[in-house]
């Protein structure tokens, strides 16, 4: 949305056309898998068995969705997952910003040391058992805290955020310092407003990983009342063919819904909330407005 207009050369027009065509293809290729899942989940199981691609539902039905919501447990699990995602993402954003900001200040002594200290943990980790023992010693097993605390800070996301902060012109901060603002003021009132896109990205990163994470739920929680949606759903779709309904006789399995339809439905209801939230975050990606607005 550049304010200064200029004329495009014919060469540029052609290249733009090519790029646009490419983008249309990319969009199709990117959207299709999820579309496939959604349409499959809305199709009658038997009609869906013939395979192939799905551009629209075959014999539209909501039976798999209705089957899923017939149990109490899924609502408990859903509530836990939403709560976990919101709270954990909130905590994560705070601690990530607090860590990333100081590390983006070039004059800070010991900065590199801290960075190395954090980066090292991206490469080396103690593994499942020591972590489990730690969480046990902290009395976090079977508590809600285990969803919020152990995964609070991702070194990967922190380094990216630090880079965003570094990109903010130092002059802004310098002038604020001269006005007597503290570093916390600068972070809260100058850096954060300028980094909306960065925070949207971080929110999405943390939100998605919190929403999708299930191993914590499997390992650290036995209490059904604290079960996560992903743990509940994973059990439904990761049936081990040799032991499940397929070989032992099971009256209930003769229902007209196939494992494949169920799997697609599970994927659809896991991904849909993410897509909705993500498309809301989109508006922070519009460029060119922020720097100007702060300067004025």
């Amino acid at each position: 949305m550049s304010k200064v207009k200029y004329k495009k050369s014919p060469g540029e027009r052609v290249s733009e056309l090519i790029i646009n065509i490419l983008l249309v293809i990319i969009v199709f290729v990117m959207i299709y898998p999820f579309w496939h899942v959604l349409m499959y989940s809305l199709s009658d199981s038997r009609a869906a068995m013939s395979g192939g691609l799905f551009f629209y539902p075959r014999k539209f039905t909501l039976i798999t969705y209705r089957m899923l919501i017939r149990t109490k447990q899924i609502f408990i699990a859903f509530k836990n997952s939403v709560l976990k995602t919101v709270l954990a993402t909130f905590f994560s954003l705070i601690i990530t910003a607090l860590t990333a900001y100081p590390l983006s200040i070039p004059g800070l002594k010991g900065r590199r040391l801290v960075q190395v200290y954090i980066f090292f943990t991206m490469l080396f980790s103690g593994g499942i058992i020591p972590t489990y023992l730690l969480i046990k010693d902290l009395h976090m097993l079977d508590t809600f805290w285990v969803y919020l605390i152990p995964g609070m800070l991702s070194a990967h996301h922190m380094f990216i955020l630090r880079n965003f902060f570094q990109a903010i012109p130092d002059s802004l901060e310098e002038s604020a310092m001269l006005d007597g603002a503290s570093h916390m003021d600068i972070l809260l009132w100058i850096v954060l407003p300028l980094s909306k896109a960065a925070f949207a990205t971080q929110t999405m990163f943390y939100g998605v990983s919190n929403w999708n994470e299930y191993m914590d739920g499997v390992l650290y929680v036995n209490d059904q009342r604290l079960q996560l949606l992903q743990v509940y759903l994973r059990q439904l779709i990761y049936t081990d063919g040799s032991k499940s309904v397929l070989s032992g006789a099971d009256l209930a399995a003769s229902a007209a819904v196939t494992e494949e339809s169920m799997k697609m439905t599970v994927v659809a209801i896991t991904v849909l909330p993410v897509i909705i939230v993500y498309s809301f975050l989109q508006k922070y990606y519009m460029k060119g407005i922020m720097i100007g607005s702060v300067k004025e």
């Binding site: 010693d137 902290l138 009395h139 097993l141 079977d142 805290w145 605390i149 929680v221 036995n222 209490d223």
Partner: peptide, 21 residues
């Protein structure tokens, strides 16, 4: 507080962990 964990969280854990291990 939330990071260093233990001391603050002992209470909730004791009540909920009962059904666990």
């Amino acid at each position: 507080c939330s990071v260093s964990g233990c001391s603050g969280e002992q209470k909730p854990s004791e009540t909920t962990a009962a059904s666990g291990t």
